Simulated assay, not measured.
Amino acid sequence: MANKTHEIEERKMKIDGMEINYARVGRSNHPVLLLPGALGTIWTDFKPQIENLNTDKLTIVAWDPPGNGKSRPPDKTFPNNFYQRNASLAHNLMQTLDYSKFSLLGWCDGGITSLLLASTYPESILKMIVLGAKAYIHPDEIKIYEIYRDINKWSERMRTPMIQVYGEDYFRKTWSDWTDAMLRLYKKQNGNLCKEVLSKIKCPTLIIHGAKDEVVLPEHSTYLEQNIADSTVYIFEKGGHNPHLKYFEEFNNLVTDFLLCQ
């Protein structure tokens, strides 16, 4: 459990001309950057980690990517290079906070950003954990995206926090824009998101996949393990797409053991 005497700091910082919101807790010499999902935020996607990871041994930093959460205005956009843009911004945020070396914990879209960040700046990354991440879009996932384009198809537990953050209109429109971006990248890049850069990742990597994930196909974890040199797969048997929220104690123990092992 985290040491509750450590206070959580949350503020904005200008990075590459953008106002980026971040939260930080802990004063360890091992910083870990948490990267949320597509429209996720610090608090919708990583509240159990920020509040419960061991902040005596880890310094936890979480960010709202541009257009997410409190990193607005401006509204979120999806140019073809938005994953690469976010990877560069996240790296520059950590450098500005004076963390020359740090670890990564990325979920879903944040996992894709993490893969790009670790491959582009290998000298900066100590260790990496990705959950529900992938290097390409499978044709069957296009069908899944179209189903979940309608936010009414989301579970109440996942939809409500997003509406509370964004309001229903912004959330509905921006999620549809994300879906369009995925379809565009699938057609333009033959589904490839970052396959060619995986060989550049040098850090020890833990690939976590929920056995009941209905959004990301299980083959992605196998592909990542086969193409990232120092990597291991852990199948979260109870979990779906977001086991770090529903089973956070078990998840936190897993990632802490990985991050702190020599």
Rank of each mutant, 00 (worst) to 15 (best):
G240Q: 03
E214C: 12
K246N: 15
N81I: 00
A23M: 01
K238L: 11
K173A: 14
K57P: 08
I15M: 03
L259A: 12
F258L: 09
H209E: 01
D98S: 06
E156L: 14
W154R: 06
I208C: 12
T113V: 13
V215H: 11
R11N: 15
T222L: 10
K76N: 06
V32P: 08
L260C: 13
K70C: 05
I42H: 02
Q262L: 15
P36L: 04
D177P: 09
F171Q: 02
D56W: 10
K127F: 05
P74Y: 00
E214Y: 10
S100V: 13
R172W: 04
V32A: 11
R157V: 15
M182K: 00
R172P: 05
G132V: 00
G67C: 12
I112F: 02
E168S: 06
N81K: 00
A87R: 02
D150L: 02
Q226G: 15
R72F: 05
H91E: 11
K14S: 15
V32M: 06
G110N: 09
N190G: 13
F251R: 04
Y166W: 01
F102I: 04
R24P: 01
T77V: 07
D150S: 09
T174L: 02
P122Q: 09
T113K: 08
K212E: 15
S176M: 15
D213E: 05
E225G: 12
E168P: 10
L33H: 03
K202P: 12
G132N: 05
L193V: 01
T96P: 11
N252F: 08
Y148N: 13
I50S: 03
G239E: 05
W107P: 06
V130W: 07
R184H: 10
G110K: 02
N80K: 00
I42F: 07
A229I: 14
K187L: 03
I125M: 06
D109W: 08
C203Q: 09
M18E: 13
A133L: 00
P204V: 07
T205Q: 03
V165M: 07
T77A: 11
Y166F: 00
L206G: 10
T205R: 04
K47M: 11
I235N: 09
I201D: 03
L115H: 00
Y22S: 04
E168A: 11
E146Y: 13
K187I: 00
Y121D: 03
K200M: 13
I50E: 06
G210S: 04
Y148G: 00
R172Y: 06
S88F: 07
I20Q: 09
K188I: 15
A211D: 10
N29K: 14
K188C: 10
Y145I: 05
L115M: 06
C261V: 14
N3D: 14
K187Q: 12
E7P: 13
L116F: 04
E219K: 08
L58P: 08
V233I: 05
N86T: 12
I147T: 15
L39V: 12
I144M: 05
Y234E: 10
